[in-house]
Simulated scan of single mutants.
Amino acid sequence: MVWVSRVLLRKYGRFMDDLRIYVRGGAGGMGYPRLGGQGGHGGDVWLVAHENLTLRRLKSQFPKKRFVAGTGDNSKILALKGAKGKDYEVNVPWGISVVASDGKLLGELNKPGDRLLVARGGVGGSLFTNFHPTKGQAQSIHLDLKLIADVGLVGFPNAGKSSLLTSISHATPQIAEYPFTTISPELGTIECVDHKQITVADLPGLIEGAHANKGRGHKFLKHVERTNQLLFVVDVHGFQLSSKATFRTAFETIMLLAKELELYKEELRDKPTILAVNKMDLPDAERNLNELLEQLQNPQDHMHSLPKEMIPADSVSFKEIIPISALTGEGTEKLVTCLRKVLDEEAEKNIAQYHREQLNALHLSDI
Rank of each mutant, 00 (worst) to 15 (best):
L8V: 07
G13V: 02
R20K: 08
R20I: 13
Y22S: 12
G29R: 11
G31K: 10
G31Q: 04
L35S: 11
W46L: 12
V48A: 07
L53Q: 08
L55N: 00
K59G: 04
S60N: 00
R66Q: 15
D73A: 13
K84C: 08
Y88L: 11
Y88F: 11
E89F: 13
W94K: 10
S97A: 09
V98F: 03
V99R: 11
L105P: 06
L109K: 04
D114Q: 05
R115A: 14
A119D: 01
R120C: 10
G124I: 01
G124K: 08
S126K: 06
S126M: 07
F128A: 14
N130W: 07
H132W: 02
Q139K: 14
D144E: 06
V154T: 04
K161I: 02
S167P: 02
I168Q: 03
P173F: 08
Q174I: 10
P179L: 07
T182M: 06
P185D: 05
G188M: 02
T189W: 04
Q197K: 15
I198Q: 06
T199E: 12
I207V: 15
G209R: 01
H211D: 14
N213S: 11
F220L: 14
V224C: 12
V236I: 14
S243R: 13
E262N: 08
L263K: 11
Y264I: 06
K265R: 15
E266V: 13
L268E: 06
L268C: 12
I274W: 03
I274T: 13
A276M: 09
K279G: 03
N290K: 13
Q295I: 00
Q297W: 00
N298T: 07
D301C: 06
H304V: 01
S305V: 01
S305M: 08
K308Y: 11
I311Q: 05
P312K: 00
V316K: 03
I322A: 11
I324Q: 10
I324G: 10
S325R: 06
G329Q: 12
T337W: 12
L339N: 09
V342T: 15
E345V: 02
Y354L: 15
Y354F: 14
S365K: 13
